[in-house]
Amino acid sequence: MVSKRIFTVVAACVVAGPVLAAEPPAVDLARAEAIHMDSCFMCHGPNGESSTKLFPRLAGQHYQYIVRQLEAFRSGARKSNMMEGVVGELSEQEMLALGVFFENKSTTGNVTDDAGLLEVGRFIYNRGNEYSGVPACASCHGEDGHGSAQMPRLASQIPRYIENRLKSFADGGDPVMQGIAGKLTELEIKAVAVYVSSLD
């Protein structure tokens, strides 16, 4: 059942192709910056670049994805005691403003000196692994890792964060990602994280 769902989702991504993100709406960026400096920057950095390897880089992320994650934290669909406390008092307009605020921030890929691991990650990301049934990540997240309005940007993300998220998906949660991440080896997880984080 899960494999069929994975096939359906990936096939839909391939047929539809990358869906361009809509032009960000007009929002109160000054309010977003105030919220960021009050509640977000300690973990996510002054410009959304992340302050540690454990927290995601929000700079350049699609505003729609950020809003969906904030809503998921508030509803409890995505678990985090810290984030639930942060988003609990945010209005819908404030969440939207934060999404646009972070999308407007620029970011660049991470540098790695492990050429072998980079090539393994490049292969899995772009071609998948037909022997274990892992589809190409690029099918949904795009060859450049920029994602779309529906799929998160992975390019230039913190590699350790990507590793942790893939391992978390393998343990449960999103049924599609669980079916994919659960088939990745430890090496493949690390390689994909290193590769996609190197993209601009």
Rank of each mutant, 00 (worst) to 15 (best):
V100L: 12
A22N: 13
M83H: 08
S106K: 09
E23A: 14
V27M: 09
E33M: 05
L20I: 13
R57T: 15
Q93N: 13
E33W: 00
I35C: 14
G76A: 11
A30V: 15
E103M: 11
D28S: 00
F102V: 10
Y65M: 12
A34V: 09
M42P: 01
V111K: 09
E71I: 12
K105D: 01
G45F: 02
P18C: 00
F73N: 10
E49H: 12
V67A: 08
L29V: 02
D114F: 09
F73C: 12
N81K: 09
G116L: 08
S106N: 05
R78C: 08
M83W: 01
G76V: 06
P56S: 15
E103F: 07
P46S: 12
M37D: 15
E92G: 04
Q64N: 11
F73Y: 15
H62A: 14
A34W: 02
E33Y: 03
G48Y: 00
F102S: 12
D114R: 08
G45H: 01
I66S: 12
Y65G: 11
A30C: 03
S39N: 04
P24D: 00
V100S: 13
N110M: 12
A21T: 12
V14L: 14
D113M: 06
A77P: 04
C43T: 05
L96I: 11
V100H: 08
V111D: 03
M83D: 08
R31A: 11
H44N: 07
E84P: 04
E23S: 14
L54R: 07
A59T: 04
C40S: 05
G116I: 05
E49V: 12
E49L: 15
E92L: 01
Y63C: 07
A72Y: 05
L117Q: 11
F55H: 06
L54S: 13
M95L: 10
N81E: 07
L96Q: 15
H44M: 05
V111W: 04
I66R: 01
G17C: 08
I66C: 07
T108D: 05
D28Y: 02
A34L: 09
F55D: 00
E94F: 06
V15S: 12
A21M: 02
V15F: 10
C43K: 00
D113G: 00
S75I: 09
F102W: 08
N104H: 08
F102C: 11
C13Q: 03
A32E: 01
K53Q: 14
E84I: 06
S91Q: 10
L70I: 04
R74K: 15
N104A: 15
F102H: 11
A26I: 08
K53H: 13
P56Y: 12
D114P: 06
R68D: 07
F41I: 10
Q93D: 13
A32D: 07
N81L: 10
K53G: 13
V27T: 14
K53I: 13
R74W: 06
R78Q: 12
E23N: 12
L54A: 14
E49P: 09
P46M: 09
G45I: 01
G17T: 05
V27P: 10
G99Q: 00
S50C: 08
P18I: 02
C40T: 02
P25Y: 03
G45T: 02
Y63W: 07
R68L: 02
G85S: 04
V100A: 14
M95H: 05
